[in-house]
């Protein structure tokens, strides 16, 4: 059985593309009432340059902790990186101190969140908030920064940008707030954008517009995106590659078309089959039994074994490595013998 680190993503013609961000064996521990608990267990990720990697998982799977660790935003009182490296443009972010990190975060790596309105300051105008981030990260003058702010609002297709820049967040709808946050995130021309459930709170028609905008800007700016979501529909809409997380681990990684069409981990299969789209009209959904175990109760062997209909004794005997083959990877020892169902 071939065992090696996660392969570099390959382009359709088979060439190895370069990754903007490479996370290797990242583990994070939280101090909890159950003592020191590992909430991220050896996560490997690569975000290819100019592409979108979707990070999919349920609540508690560790997808947000992964993004916070990359951004250096883990609350140091409760969480710390216990092992692993986060390579970004030749530097290991996990090894930098707070002052060094600040030069990268927000400038070279920016982030947008689900709650756009909450991330905007209600007492400053939209233009001021975007201009402020540009002045901090690029040292532009007040006038230049304001000009840039308006350019950014135009870039994210906010109509009447010059007037809107002088307005306050409460006059913006949820979808417009999300655009403002995106404008602010992109103002310093980052090479990596981390988008954590950016469309989850939006209505479906507004979500469609936001996704289209993200794709357009990605092409124009050559932006790499780490797209975190629980919504498989949004993932297939947005992402070139997909990493599926379950209970603190990446359980499958690969090309989006391949992961959806031919999943190689039973959890991925379970997620796809539990979608209403996979069921026949008026039929039952193929639910995954049980629920995600809490971090302090993760089993020794495969974290998914207790809910997996394909589990055998060997699955529970010890940690299961992420096995890679042909540009994709799975954390299932039976991947080769199982024939799992994807989207129809």
């Amino acid at each position: 059985m071939a065992m090696k680190a996660l392969p570099l993503p390959t382009s359709p013609d088979g060439d190895v593309t370069d990754a903007v961000l490479t996370v290797t064996d990242l583990s994070v521990e939280f101090q909890t009432e159950h003592g020191r608990v590992r909430v991220l267990d050896g996560v490997d990720l690569q975000v290819p340059s100019g592409k979108t990697l979707g990070l999919v998982g349920e609540s508690g799977s560790g997808k947000t902790v992964t993004s916070l660790a990359i951004m250096g935003l883990l609350d140091r009182r409760v969480g710390r990186i216990s092992s692993g490296s986060i390579q970004f443009e030749g530097q290991d972010l996990a090894a930098l101190d707070a002052r060094q990190l600040r030069r990268i975060q927000g400038a070279k790596i920016s982030m947008i969140f689900q709650e756009a309105r909450r991330s905007l300051d209600p007492v400053f105008t939209i233009g001021d908030q975007i201009a402020e981030s540009v002045r901090i990260h690029e040292g532009l003058s007040r006038r230049e920064a304001w000009k840039r702010a308006i350019e950014m609002l135009q870039l994210v297709q906010i109509p009447d940008a010059e007037r809107r820049a002088r307005e306050y967040p409460h006059t913006f709808s949820g979808g417009m707030c999300q655009r403002v946050m995106l404008a602010s995130a992109l103002a310093s021309r980052p090479s990596l954008l981390i988008a954590d459930e950016p469309t989850t709170a939006l209505d479906v028609t507004v979500q469609a517009q936001m996704l289209r905008l993200l794709r357009t800007l990605q092409e124009e700016m050559g932006l790499a995106i780490l797209f975190i979501t629980h919504d498989l529909g949004v993932v297939s809409e947005m992402c070139d590659r997909v990493a599926v997380m379950y209970a603190g681990q990446i359980v499958e990684e690969g090309d989006a078309t391949q992961v959806f069409g031919h999943p190689r981990h039973p959890y991925t299969e379970g997620l796809i089959q539990s979608l209403p789209e996979s069921a026949v009209a008026r039929g039952r959904l193929a639910a995954i039994p049980g629920s995600v175990p809490p971090a302090h109760a993760w089993p020794q062997g495969c974290h998914f074994a207790d809910r997996c209909r394909y589990a055998v004794d060997a699955c529970r005997s010890g940690p299961i490595p992420l096995l890679s083959r042909d540009g994709s990877a799975t954390r299932c020892i039976r991947a080769d013998e199982l024939s799992l169902a994807g989207v129809r």
Partner: peptide, 19 residues
């Protein structure tokens, strides 16, 4: 038309009508 479909081969963000 705006509901995303969990199938990368049937993307529609480029085709759905923008309201």
């Amino acid at each position: 038309a705006a509901v995303p479909v969990p199938d990368p081969n049937r993307r529609k963000s480029q085709t759905a009508i923008p309201l």
